[in-house]
Amino acid sequence: MIAQAAALPGEEISRPSSIWKQSLATFIENRLALAGAIVLVLLILFSFVGPLLYHTNQTATNLINENLAPSGSHLLGTTPEGRDELGRLMVGGQSTIEVGLGVGVLATLFGMVYGSVAGYLGGVVDAVMMRIVDALLSIPYLFFVVLLAALVQVNLLVLILVLSAVSWLSTARLVRGETLSLRTRDFVSASTGFGSRMRHVIARHITPNLLGVVVVNGTLKVADAILAFAAVAYLGLGPAPPATNWGELISAGINNLFDGYWWQLWPAGVLIVAIVIAVNVIGDGLSDVVEVRLQKR
């Protein structure tokens, strides 16, 4: 009995002491999510580190080199303006990733705050706040984005704000529904009974239990923002040249598709599909991590 009792502290010490190590181990167990994370890191390095290693001129046009096929001097050929296509893909990836991450963070944070407040307060406040959401959701998503993008001078910051303005709505509804369920739980009632303020209850008890849903939804927002940005740029409402993005490259590639210039279309399309799938599977992995952490609370 003494030996058994003495072994218990050692067993406790041998367990993972860091919650981050536990989270990392849980994420790695999801091999698909790990592969998605590797793909995302490679795409980030391709977009932000690649131009430092593969030097090209992406500002000036060179019509002598227009529509050249892939070769040793231009690994993926050239664009109709004579710019190097591979360098163009790298520069375009920067704005695409920045918009996706920016919209994902802003839309998720605002939607989480809005939905949790509406769900926790309930009553008339909830009804009014959610009718506003319903009214905005009745407007077609892409139409709203195109309308806002057409009314203002477009740059990356404006596009992030425009896409965030229409992306937070579904997050708010999702969070509001989860909050309506959580606010009736015993731990929330106990905290309220002890005199805790709404801000404390939402921050300490509601928000941690929303993380699993919010994290997955946030990753979906990143993917949706990348697709929406590509659609807006495809319609010609993206940042003005020489700035570029993968959606604008697809638009230019389709215009020259029947001329046999495949390198102007397919690489950008493959990169968009790759980053969207990578972000989605990462969301699944993060959901597993959050669930494990909540079980240990």
Rank of each mutant, 00 (worst) to 15 (best):
A243E: 00
Q295A: 15
L156F: 06
V213F: 11
G193R: 06
G247R: 08
I38A: 14
G269W: 10
W246P: 04
V103H: 03
V41G: 12
D284A: 05
L24M: 15
S164D: 11
R297Q: 09
I277L: 13
D259P: 00
T108Q: 04
E291A: 12
A240F: 01
V145A: 15
I206Q: 01
G119C: 00
G236Y: 01
L211I: 15
V273C: 07
R15S: 15
K21I: 14
S189G: 00
G247T: 07
T207P: 09
L237V: 01
V128W: 10
V154W: 01
Q58M: 13
A278L: 07
P140I: 04
L32Y: 10
P9I: 07
V276R: 06
S167L: 06
S71K: 03
A228V: 10
V232I: 12
T244D: 03
M90S: 14
V213C: 11
V214M: 09
L265R: 03
L257S: 07
G285I: 02
V158P: 05
D134N: 01
V49L: 15
A223F: 08
M112E: 00
K221I: 05
A33C: 09
I19L: 15
A172E: 07
A203I: 13
L8H: 11
N67W: 12
L68V: 05
V99S: 08
F27H: 07
L294A: 12
L161W: 05
G269N: 05
R199F: 14
L235P: 02
E11H: 12
L148K: 14
G195A: 00
L89D: 12
L53P: 09
T96P: 05
G77M: 03
T78R: 06
N62K: 09
E81D: 15
Y261C: 08
S71C: 06
R197G: 15
V105H: 03
G123M: 09
A230T: 03
L159C: 08
G212K: 07
T219E: 04
I160K: 06
T56L: 05
V49D: 08
T79Y: 08
G102R: 11
G122K: 02
G50V: 13
Q58K: 07
S164F: 07
V133S: 02
G119L: 00
V113I: 09
I282A: 02
Y114R: 06
L211S: 14
L265D: 10
S287G: 13
L220W: 14
I202W: 06
G195L: 05
E11N: 15
I282V: 06
L161M: 15
A190V: 13
I160F: 13
V39T: 12
L53A: 09
V289M: 09
S164L: 05
V145Q: 02
G10R: 15
A118Y: 01
L89C: 14
P140V: 07
V124D: 01
